[in-house]
Amino acid sequence: MTSERSIVYQEEAFVLHGIPWKETSMIVEVLTAHHGRVPLVAKGVRRPRSALRGLLQPFQPLMINWFGQGELRTLRTAEWQGGIPLLQGHALFCGFYLNELLMLLLKRDDPHEALFLEYKQALKKLTHVELFEPVLRVFELALLRELGYAPSLEHEVVSGEPVDPHRTYRFDPENGAVQWNGSTGPDVVKFKGKTLLDMAKSNYDDPGTLAQGKQLMRILLSHQLGHQDLHSRRIIQELLLS
């Protein structure tokens, strides 16, 4: 392991998840711009008078220092950065959903600066937008693209031709858009060309795009997640139904 990995100074980070560890410590998974997802031990942070108690909360930008060489490194300091109001209400649940996606799909120590910025942007938007779904769709697609799991939305796979907004396509999670051949059945999900093009431009103004986009992202995500269930999605649904 390289020596520069042993100490990291002044890295902007978000806590994705924290679990209590030993008597007074916590293990937090943080998302950083230059080091990706990193697990850190926050020693003594659960003591009543710990300066960091209450600081290591999700959805708040922190500036942190850490050290260590193994997989689990040690948090040294964390400072509150501010700039993003606390998420409230339903936005909080959307935030948990984003965090869960990152915990499941992003490997540790795999830096994606663009993804970090997308995440920060999504959190900022969640604090004030009225419609949360477009924010979630944009982030989901950015996540899959950044990890190399998202096929092109703008070109048909077989012919390589640009997607025609007026045509109908099927979407294969491995390869991408395939022109719909008229087949039907429970497994055949069709998408309008316009939906795919709108999504490529992160434009969800059209309610049709929003509805189909959700369906498409569901297919792409479950292809990557396999048998793993998203707890946050289940909980949001349970709350909406109750």
């Binding site: 869960e100 909980i235 709350l239």
Partner: peptide, 16 residues
């Protein structure tokens, strides 16, 4: 408390 990432939802807490 609800803890979506740990799979603790309204049913687990007994909201009803």
């Amino acid at each position: 408390r609800l803890s979506p990432l740990d799979g603790i939802g309204p049913q687990e807490i007994g909201f009803d």
